[in-house]
Design a protein around this nucleic acid. Structure first.
Lengths: 108, 108
DNA sequence: TACCGTTATCTATAGCAATAGATAACGGTT
DNA sequence: AACCGTTATCTATTGCTATAGATAACGGTA
């Protein structure tokens, strides 16, 4: 037996969770949302919708887009996005720790 | 902004979570899985599949069924089921508390 | 100027999960 | 013996989400 969970932030609908977080991480790494989605085996359309919704519900842009140019374009995470990712990353780590502790206490 | 989450137990697939928990609570109250499902606005078939899967994955029966008889039959929660619900109930309450604390810490 | 891969969108299709609806067995009560 | 509402299952349909596939705009580079 093991614990499983999903934790996310809501603001009039899903605002931010594991999906957007990993997409941003990979976008930062690869330089484009397209490649980020691809490496997660997610369709670009889905990735795009996820990011668009997150931005709408968080109220600030997560990606800085460039269309055309050297590699066709690309995206990088905004300053606000990077800051948010740091905080969310710590939040995520702590929820994981706490949940595992509670699981151990009752079912370990 | 608020936190949202789903926490459940796995054992070769979903074993137990909010759905089975509420179904068992209502079944204990109403005396039948049929009525429990109905009061959750869930189809009986879905409720039945949920309970069947939980039993398979937990490895012990949650319901004691009676087919036919006074009210057509009915179900009550087994002794093991009641014991498990108590533990899960405490687990559930504590995960809720911890998650809200962590949320407050980072986003409150 | 032609090219390339990206962003930004549509639309149509596929695939999966939920629901509806049906059927059978059952056994106290009346 | 007939009835009733439940458990236990099927099957067919519905509905939603994801995916596929297409199109356009864009702007450095060669």
């Amino acid at each position: 037996m093991k614990i499983a969970y999903k934790v996310w932030l809501e603001n009039d609908g899903k605002a931010f969770g594991e999906g957007p977080f990993r997409l941003l991480q990979l976008t930062a790494q690869k330089g484009s949302l397209h490649q980020a989605a691809k490496s997660m085996e997610m369709s670009y359309q889905k990735a795009w919708v996820i990011i668009r919704n997150s931005e709408k519900r968080l109220g600030f842009p997560l990606l800085e887009r460039k269309i055309g140019g050297v590699a066709g374009g690309g995206s990088k995470v905004t300053e606000e996005g990077r800051e948010f990712m740091k905080i969310y990353g710590r939040f995520r780590k702590e929820t994981e720790k706490k949940l595992n502790e509670v699981f151990q206490k009752y079912f370990g």
